[in-house]
Amino acid sequence: MKIRDPQDFWAGVMFIVFGGAAIFFARSYAFGSAAKMGPGYFPSVLGGILIALGLFTSLRGLVFAGQPVGRFNWKPLLYVLGSIMLFAFALQSLGLVVAIFALIVVSALGGHEFKLKEVLALALILAVGSVAIFNYGLQLQFPIGPW
């Protein structure tokens, strides 16, 4: 059997995995009856439907021709998501200002061009602006610095 529509085929696999996981974890919740549905009822039913839909999608991917799955571009993916995670870590221990610099500089590395001076200027403006807007203007409770 040849995969003729990789997008559909793998999307189907993804749905089967999610549906299977739902049923697997829902097994530990009481199923109940139609009159008194337990916490496991709804997720199990949904999981079953999702598996069925996934199977159908995958099979269609074997029958009909379609688009290939695009290549994963790791660079923007890792820099963008990494910079956000870095922000989350830095915010609690080092404060908002450091976290902003970390996010801006690292995410900018994921772009097409990187001009350090420009990026630092941007980070500075955003840091000052954010502290003013969020800490003072909106009175949100962010730690500003590590102190």
Binding site: F87, L103, A108
Partner: peptide, 24 residues
């Protein structure tokens, strides 16, 4: 330019999410 716009977008998203329940 998008190279300056996108880090700012990410930042505002991240701050917004954090402010929901003050949790990273």
């Amino acid at each position: 330019p998008y190279r300056m716009l996108f880090p700012a977008i990410l930042l505002f998203c991240a701050i917004g999410i954090y402010s929901l329940s003050n949790s990273s």
